[in-house]
């Protein structure tokens, strides 16, 4: 609860527009790629404000996906994490919690451990790109928080993920 509350406050403080707490476990926070950001006036806090969490979540992409039972960051994942690292190095007031998740094909406690591996793989990658380690915490939800609920690979692929959730400022 406190985490959600923090994020809500943060987004509100930035003058919102952005969907609150986008895709924390919810729908489509998937990497939109930078292409979605068009011209026109930049609305502070919106997805076309490059300093906003909304931009981080939607334009850069807040999550990376993993192969079955793997925790190695993929090539596609590296592109997204490079974007995340750059953003975090620019927007130094933010910290983040990296959430690791697994699909349902596994035992509960093993999947918590597997999610921890995935979250840590993302954290280590971001640290290797210069983000200070004390800005990045990790948590694993195992198979407890799928975003897709079908029982086939199309859903499983989206559930095997690590999501970088921006949180309160370093001084906050």
């Amino acid at each position: 609860m406190t985490l959600t509350a923090k994020i809500l406050l943060l987004v509100a403080g930035l003058a919102l527009a952005a969907c609150t707490n986008p895709g924390r476990f919810g729908a489509d926070g998937t990497a939109g790629g930078a292409g979605g950001v068009g011209g026109g006036a930049i609305v502070p806090g919106s997805a076309n404000d490059p300093t906003s969490p909304a931009y981080f979540n939607q334009a850069i992409g807040d999550r990376v996906l993993f192969a079955v039972d793997q925790s190695a960051v993929t090539d596609e994942g590296r592109v997204i994490l490079d974007g995340q690292a750059t953003w975090l190095l620019t927007n130094t007031d933010f910290t983040a919690i990296i959430e690791g998740h697994a699909d349902e094909q596994g035992t509960r406690e093993y999947n918590v451990a597997l999610g921890a591996r995935r979250a840590n793989a993302v954290r280590e990658y971001l640290v290797s790109k210069g983000v200070a380690g004390n800005r990045l915490r990790t948590v694993s939800y195992g198979k407890e928080r799928p975003i897709e609920i079908c029982s086939n690979e199309a859903c499983y692929a989206k559930n095997r993920r690590a999501v970088t959730v921006l949180a309160g400022g370093l001084t906050g």
Binding site: A116, A119, N120, A121, T138
Partner: peptide, 9 residues
Amino acid sequence: FSLSQGGNT
């Protein structure tokens, strides 16, 4: 119990 630290459990 299990303890995860730095991705290792």
